[in-house]
Design a protein around this nucleic acid. Structure first.
Lengths: 199, 199
DNA sequence: CCCATTTATGAACCACGTTCAATATAGGGC
DNA sequence: GCCCTATATTGAACGTGGTTCATAAATGGG
């Protein structure tokens, strides 16, 4: 395969990912259609399968972008906050997470709605992005609990991430909550604030 | 429509729900097929649509049963625990929630995977079941925080339910955690334990 | 027993992801 | 520039699965 071919392949992949992302963002993962994507990207239906394994792979690529954006947003939220108390930093990051989820609800949901656990193949970038996210949480936690060992810290990191994720998830699910976003912020602060009271 | 007709309709509904439940429990919501359900229940394909609006409605009926079972399990876990400290009661209920989810993973996931928020119609029994669940959580919380008003308690109830839900959700999602169930119990205890330390 | 009305049936319809035989294009040797 | 082969592109066709509906069977009152 010539260099030009690889280049065109890459360009088409990009066009397809952009098209898929726009569709998902606008109308949700469930309404993504191969034929729509193809016409958005200005290629034939079959062309999708020349550059991607299947639709799932396209969505995974979209999820990759989303995950990177999410990571950036969370990291930036505490970038210049070295002097802020660790509990506050946790709350700030969680609020960044909440607002990203609220502003890109459909893209954010796609991160978790796409099932991939079935065949056990989780791509490396997914695990890496998750590790990065966890690392940002573990840091303030290590300040709050300087005596905890690595395993305990890891467990607490996962516990808190999961808690915040759950609050955001159900908070944005209007069938369950119908709670305005400021209330969701308060819920996060409540749970994290209690943890921050040390032992 | 005669009385006998209504009776037969009800019987068929029941047979279909049982068939759907078995399929979902065994292989997950995503693998439920109308044709399979019909042959399991010993009726024709079209008969499904005589007694249910569509497949979604069948799954909603299954979810109704699951939700009732879940409510019973959680309620029973603290039925004879009036003398136990409220924080412990919260932990016991959460573990009951965790174990129900772990033992009926596919049925439990179906509770949340089925999208219904789109057309805003949430059935009454769903909201009622949720209210019941929240009530069980609010009770120990009211003991821990006797000074909080109803609105604050409600917020904290939702926050803690969401937290536990998130921990269970990501804890059972092997792509993210791969954490054994005892560790998930520990995470729940950690988060709830901190809250239980009062103010 | 007959006819009207209700109920059940499954073949057919449609939407979609995916495939693949047919077509178009590209590239290299002369 | 001209073939010819290899590679890439295409979109019609296939398989699957939810849903519908014309037709057939069953039901029940007179």
């Amino acid at each position: 395969m010539s260099e030009k071919s690889k280049q065109r392949k890459l360009v088409l992949r990009e066009r397809l990912v952009v098209a898929a992302e726009a569709r998902i963002e606008r109308a949700g993962l469930a309404s993504l259609r191969a034929r729509d994507m193809a016409s958005d990207a200005g290629c034939s239906l079959g062309a999708i399968y020349n550059v991607f394994e299947d639709l799932n792979a396209v969505v995974m690529a979209v999820n990759g972008r989303t995950f990177r954006k999410l990571g950036t947003v969370v990291a930036n939220s505490v970038a210049d906050a070295a002097s802020i108390a660790p509990t506050q930093r946790l709350i700030i990051m969680s609020n960044a997470y909440l607002h990203f989820a609220a502003e890109h609800k459909n893209l954010w949901r796609a991160l978790f709605d796409l099932q991939m656990s079935s065949d056990g193949m989780v791509p490396d970038w997914y695990l890496a992005a998750l590790r990065d996210l966890f690392q940002h949480i573990a840091e303030p936690l290590a300040e709050i609990f300087p005596d905890k060992n690595a395993a305990d810290l890891d467990l607490m990191t996962r516990a808190l991430f999961s808690s915040v994720h759950g609050i955001v998830l159900l908070g944005l699910e209007n069938r369950i909550s119908g709670v305005p976003i400021e209330k969701v912020e308060m819920m996060i602060s409540q749970v994290l604030g209690e943890v921050g009271k040390k032992n």
